[in-house]
Amino acid sequence: MSNTMEEGREWPLYEVFVRARGGLDHKHVGSLHASDARMAIDHARDLYTRRQEGVSIWVVPSKEITASDPAETDSLFEPARDKIYRHPTFYEIPDEVKTL
């Protein structure tokens, strides 16, 4: 028997991203198991677009995704909070000035 190493092993997990309509971003919808990327596309089509939920699919091996650590949420994202001058509503422009 060849490839005994492969036998009984679970198909790897893929994360699935679907573009709902032309012009939109791909959005994470869930995961699934497949033995290869092409099968993952087929499975994603059957699992996540049975009701016309998509026009394009990305699949990524779950193990290839690096996620930020929740323990670092404060240090990663809090510093952006006080930089309110980045937002257009921070500035008061006189009514007389148009198209700005």
Binding site: E6, E7, S35, D36, M39
Partner: peptide, 15 residues
Amino acid sequence: GQWVRDAASAYAEKQ
């Protein structure tokens, strides 16, 4: 289904 799942894994490894 075991032989089917194994065959797909083996094929993926060969690829």
